[in-house]
Computed example of a mutant assay.
Amino acid sequence: MGLNAEYSTEAPDRREIDALRDATVLEFGTGWCGFCRGAQPLIAEAFAAFPQVRHLKIEDGPGRPLGRSFRVKLWPTLVFLRDGVEVARIVRPGSAAEIAAALHVLGAASATD
């Protein structure tokens, strides 16, 4: 589990996402997006304390059904799932603390807890 470095061009089917168990974060964006690139240090910092959380980094854009099923409009969008159900969302995160707070909402214990 843990943090993924690259956006995957292969997106899982929505049924697969809905069937996931445990804490998962979907990150929608693209490698060329300035906002996405700028958020990467914040995301990495927050995830460092939550190595047990699954992180799926999905390339988004027109014609990409998974992002549309989550009504993603801006990048990066982080969707926090517990057992396949959305419990939090952050669009264009502004701090690692904001992301870490959402990870706590998942019920995930940090490595320092």
Rank of each mutant, 00 (worst) to 15 (best):
W32A: 08
R71V: 11
D22A: 11
A49R: 13
P93H: 05
F50N: 06
V87P: 01
N4R: 14
R37F: 01
T24A: 03
V72D: 11
L20Y: 07
G84V: 08
E16R: 04
D113C: 01
R92E: 15
E16F: 02
E98W: 00
E86Y: 11
R68N: 10
S95P: 01
A19G: 04
E27C: 09
A39M: 09
L106R: 05
C33L: 10
Q40F: 10
H55M: 11
Q40W: 10
S8L: 03
I43H: 07
T9R: 13
A49H: 03
L74Y: 15
A48H: 14
T30I: 06
A101G: 01
G34R: 05
T24Y: 01
G84P: 07
A108S: 10
T112Y: 12
E59C: 02
K73V: 15
E86T: 13
A96W: 05
D60P: 00
V79A: 11
R21G: 12
A49P: 02
D18E: 13
A88W: 06
I58R: 08
A97I: 04
V53T: 07
A11G: 04
R64M: 12
I90T: 14
S110N: 08
S110Q: 05
G61N: 06
I90Q: 15
A46Y: 06
T112Q: 14
A46S: 03
G31D: 07
N4W: 00
L81M: 09
A111S: 15
K57P: 08
A49E: 12
A111V: 12
F47S: 08
T24P: 02
R37A: 12
A49K: 14
I99L: 01
L56T: 10
D13P: 00
A111E: 09
C33R: 05
L56I: 11
L74F: 14
T30E: 12
A5G: 00
G2C: 02
R82M: 09
T77D: 12
A5V: 11
G67R: 04
A109Q: 13
G29N: 05
G34T: 04
L56V: 10
I58A: 12
F28N: 07
G63D: 07
P41R: 06
T77I: 13
V87D: 03
A100F: 02
V25A: 01
R64F: 05
R92C: 02
R54V: 10
G84F: 10
E27L: 03
P76H: 13
L66N: 05
F47R: 09
